[in-house]
Amino acid sequence: MFALIKKELKIQIASPILAVGLALFLFLTGFAFSAHVTQASPQHLPEASMRGMIYFMAVILLFVTPFLSMRVFSEEMKNGTMELLKTAPLTDLQIVLGKYGAMLILLAIFLLATAIYPICIAILGQPEWGPMLFCYLGLFLLGGSFLALGLLASALTKNQVIAAVLTFVPLLTLWFLSDVGGALGEKVSLITHLQSFSVGVLDSSDLFYYLAVIFFLLFLTVRYLEAQRWR
């Protein structure tokens, strides 16, 4: 499994998609951060927190994560390297966890790259680090859910573009469920569960929601890979 994580990271880091994705992510979040800081005026001082940024960063993740996950299985199937993995002494669960582990490390790198913003806030004011960490934990879990769906979508098709679309469309639907789906939509929507994290509260139901979404999607991916063998 660790071999797979190492290989995935090597290949993703060598790919221009990662560099472009990271640059885009930093450009957009940096733009939002500068707007967040420069809106300061004697009447309206910005908070020394990431609260104003978290939803904007979540939207950027919504667009960036499908590009990270789209090639994970699609590329292996297209190049025939899936045959190498499936005939190696690995279980389907190990293959999925190896791939997902590498994706989570990349997500962590993306989020760590934005650490410059809290550092700037610390220079300009006196932030509370606890709520700020919860903001990042919330983003990590949200991004982890996006990637889990991306992994499943990538296992469904050899075509990377289709995999990205199959990730993005359900994510967008889940995102807007809170607006159009009534009370049930709000419960199911991925974004409403970020609320508690954004205000620095660790609500166990929100935490379990994200973990359950990730577990369910990874379970489906493992089952799909198993089913593929029997076709």
């Binding site: 290989k7 090597k10 290949i11 790919s15 190049n79 025939g80 390297t81 899936m82 045959e83 190498l84």
Partner: peptide
């Protein structure tokens, strides 16, 4: 040890 008809290779490595 298995070599499929199309060798399973990672061209980036």
């Amino acid at each position: 040890g298995y070599l499929p008809e199309i060798p399973p290779l990672y061209s980036e490595l």
